[in-house]
Design a protein around this nucleic acid. Structure first.
Lengths: 344, 344
DNA sequence: TTGCATTGTTATAACGATTCAATTTTCTTC
DNA sequence: GAAGAAAATTGAATCGTTATAACAATGCAA
């Protein structure tokens, strides 16, 4: 007996998806009861709760997001502001994976909003806050007195930033211990015998430039090492410009013999410049690099890298936000991720 | 005179955001009239429409997403399925930037949903379709008979895939012309004098493996060149494994002298292996690589790369979806992105 | 003046959830 | 068995929007 009878004309799947009413009819209880039963309201009899939950499970009931949002005012949305300078290699992706992973099953959706024009960095966030487009915000690359953080604090809007600020008021953040990275990385270069070390740093506007600088300076001062910190070249400079600049430096007199690269693109750029100038890494020149995607240590196992676990940062940020959303009175969680050198 | 008078107790910003009712009260019209006026309903007097629009503008009215979604059933959400194998370098990021850019101002939100467990690739999509969590879906890395595409077509659910399928029924997609890439790339290797060329290909399950293979085979057959296509090594293999494998090959007899790398990680891996074996790129060995983030051509200007514009792909996918959503009867738009060699 | 389009506006009922206050049922206790 | 307390349930209102159908107001022909 064939069972593939002609199905009813184009049965639109989601047309008749179950609501509280469906469960109410099926169970004999009122809609209000069903709602409260599913919310585990202790004033609803245990037996009723079980009964309702069972039916809900059977028919695959899932509450309607729009209705809930309209009624409660909670959007169940977390908004990630997409920074234009998401490091080319790996950073954005890893963060996204971490965020979505940690948010899975929480009921929160991750909405990604771009912010690419350099004009008004507040615009997307203001829109979200004023029009209640999300319950929480996540953004990256903080400045010491970040206008986004200030705005969100002023409005009591939950957020987690990647990177610290210099505000006295506490807020939630996750950050990599860039000072430690720079300190240990520079020590490593000195240990290798470097006499003049160069650090490629982020733009001056960003908080983590300070951290890197502190760590770097601390190490070089301890050993009285010569330094070079370019003004015009930063981590955000396109790799080809870094490369060209490095070629110039390496050709000149009194060239540095150690580089601190807090990013993968800059590492590849230096590596390439070095090769072009006929210098050999690990003989004429040493480099310590931050590794995010892991590709560097995969390709150059002998390279001195320090791993930044950005995926974990994403998970942490999501968890922090979830904590704050479920317990608004809690002290904003902050996490400093330690720098783990892959060399000894 | 100091102006920092104590502000009213924690004035929650979005507490009193304007609704249709606000405009109704302000203008003297009924809520229904206001709604239809803003919708540019031709049955509403021109003068009324102008008046209402002006007030709406002044008070910064923005319709409530939840209410609208509840009433109309349209979610104004587009869902991107995050693939676990988003190429490490650049791909995911570029796509995301393209998507969000093209979606800006459209009123659609981009929600990112992960799919990391290798078990049921249909699960996230089924959830979206059955529970009406979005109006359209975007996903990547199609298989010839992709179960996700099939499911979505069966349910008449709008979607755009990155990559083609072998289904006879048409659906919307954006794809890079990988056959052309492989053909031109291989020709380039032959032109350089290569006698035995190796192609690193994606896993057999993916459609674009066929395209690459066709292009590759077409070129080598034309010139009767020897080939090597590893079975165990694919584009998804971690860079260190590719590197180790390549070292083995390059040390052995009858080694290939040309590599086709349709991905940046594989290029870096080959480049590194080559260096380790004491071979020199452009003398003992040639490589043609696909470049996505652009970092390769920035670092190795002399490298033979072919650019894939993934950001544009993202923009196209978003545009395709928007078209289909606004005109459901339209023939699903498809775009093949041409391969642009950066060498002559 | 009546009748009948035409044009513009509005009251009302949803959409699917939550929540308050009111109601019904069950359990105690005398 | 009645009264009162406790426990369990429910009707109705609400969130902000849109769609339908009904309602006024105006113009024009007969």
């Amino acid at each position: 007996m064939r069972s593939d009878a002609p199905s009813p004309p184009a049965s639109k799947t989601a047309a008749d998806r179950p609501t509280l009413k469906t469960i109410a009819d099926l169970s004999g209880f009122a809609v209000a009861t069903v709602s409260r039963a599913l919310a585990e309201d202790p004033k609803i009899a245990e037996s009723t709760r079980r009964r309702v939950a069972e039916i809900a499970r059977q028919i695959g009931y899932e509450p309607d997001r729009a209705a809930r949002r309209l009624r409660t005012g909670r959007t169940m949305v977390i908004n990630l502001i997409l920074d234009p300078h998401f490091e080319v290699l790996g950073f954005g992706n890893a963060l996204l994976i971490g965020l979505t992973t940690a948010l899975e099953g929480s009921g929160y959706n991750l909405v990604v909003t771009p912010h690419f024009d350099d004009t008004d960095e507040l615009a997307p966030i203001r829109h979200i806050v004023v029009n209640r487009q999300a319950d929480g915000v996540i953004f990256t690359r903080t400045a010491p007195f970040d206008s986004r953080a200030r705005f969100l604090m002023e409005h009591g809007f939950p957020f987690v930033s990647h990177g610290r600020t210099d505000f006295t008021e506490e807020h939630s953040w996750v950050d990599f211990d860039n000072e430690e990275f720079a300190y240990r990385g520079t020590l490593r270069l000195i240990e290798k015998g470097c006499r003049k070390v160069c650090a490629i740093l982020p733009p001056k506007t960003l908080t983590f430039r300070q951290h890197l600088q502190y760590g770097f300076m601390r190490a070089v001062r301890e050993f009285g090492i010569d330094t070079l910190v370019p003004d015009v070249i930063t981590l955000d400079t396109p790799a080809d410009e870094i490369r060209d600049w490095a070629c110039g430096i390496l050709d000149g007199p009194n060239r540095p013999d150690g580089f601190l690269c807090p990013g993968e693109a800059s590492y590849l750029a230096i590596r390439s410049a070095c090769q072009k100038c006929g210098l050999v890494l690990g003989r004429d020149l040493w480099v310590v690099s931050k590794s995010i995607s892991g590709v560097i240590s995969q390709i150059d196992p002998e390279a001195d890298t320090i791993q930044e676990d950005v995926e974990q940062a994403g998970r942490l940020m999501a968890q922090h936000l979830l904590t704050m959303l479920s317990e608004p009175s809690v002290r904003p969680p902050m996490t400093l991720q330690s720098a783990k050198p892959l060399f000894l």
